[in-house]
Amino acid sequence: MSTVLLIFYILSAVTLATAFLTIYTKNPIHSAIYLVICMVSIMGHYLLFNAQFLALVQLIVYAGAIMVLFLFTLMLMNLNKEDEVHKPRMTRYAAIIVFIVLSAVLVYVFTDTKPIMGEYDYTGEDFQSIKTLGKVLLNEYMVPFEFASILLLAAMLGVVLVSKKEKDAN
């Protein structure tokens, strides 16, 4: 077994285990911390692909900004006590059955597609350095890039508007 494959298996185990623990842990703060580890391990996968730009963005946006937002909201709501009522037993069993069946069906489907995919050939062309990606982003995808900024501005305004305290509520 090559070293790269070993790294892949370890990273995948970390990703899947922390993703599962995110859902399984009762304390929401622990969930958020497990999710941070999950995001960082996915960044490790991006680094394995040599996708530097996305690895950095994953670390900054997901593991940094989004998870800080989650933790901030959790602390704002003071939900770190472990008194969440569980769903009814039937619903939980149904969720587990759905998980098993969905995984089995999807894995079976993708196992069957394997012969269709050809061998991987590598031409050595540079397609994912930050320089190349920046050129693609600002030439072909200029308009969507600008729309993304408008989307973020609208989201920012919406967040301020929604979470503002209404003075004359009662």
Binding site: P28, T73, K87, I96
Partner: peptide, 22 residues
Amino acid sequence: VILFCIGVFGVLYRRNAIIVFM
């Protein structure tokens, strides 16, 4: 695929809306 299924499982299994978001 397995990561996606874990996400689906979380949406169905938990009642805390923040965990559903995660």
